[in-house]
Amino acid sequence: MKTSGQGFSLLLAGSTGVVGQEVLRLALADPRVTRVVAPTRRPLPPHPKLENPVVDFGALPADAPWWHVDAVVCTLGTTIKVAGSQAAFAAIDRDLAIRMATLARQAGAARFGLNSSLGASPSGNFYLKTKAEAEAGIRALGYASYTIVRPSLIDAKRGESRLGEEIGLVAMGLFKPLVPKRYRAVKPEAIARALLEGVLAGRPGEDIVESERLQG
Rank of each mutant, 00 (worst) to 15 (best):
P45R: 01
A13K: 02
I80A: 07
E22H: 13
L163W: 12
Y127I: 00
E210N: 13
P188E: 14
P45M: 00
G108Y: 10
Y183C: 06
A110G: 12
E135S: 08
G20E: 12
R182C: 02
I138D: 03
Y127T: 01
I154H: 01
G137W: 11
M172I: 05
V36Q: 05
A62I: 09
M1E: 10
K181E: 06
E165F: 02
L153M: 04
R35P: 09
A101L: 11
S116Q: 12
G119I: 07
P61L: 01
R42M: 05
P65Q: 10
L44N: 04
D93H: 02
R111N: 08
S123A: 15
E210T: 14
V33K: 06
S211M: 01
S121R: 01
G168N: 06
A120Y: 03
S211H: 01
R203N: 14
A190Y: 04
G173E: 05
S9I: 08
V54H: 04
G137H: 08
T102M: 02
L214Y: 13
R182D: 08
P180H: 02
L169N: 02
L153G: 00
V72Q: 10
V209D: 06
R41A: 06
H68D: 14
E133I: 00
P61Y: 03
T78E: 10
V18K: 09
V82N: 14
I191H: 06
R99N: 13
R111K: 12
M1I: 09
L26K: 07
A192P: 10
P151S: 14
T75F: 13
L44R: 02
A59Y: 07
V82E: 15
K129L: 09
V82Y: 11
E165P: 02
P180F: 02
Y143I: 05
A38I: 10
G202H: 02
G17W: 00
P177Y: 05
D207L: 13
Q86Y: 11
E165C: 04
L12K: 12
T102N: 03
Q86G: 15
E212R: 14
K187V: 06
A107Y: 09
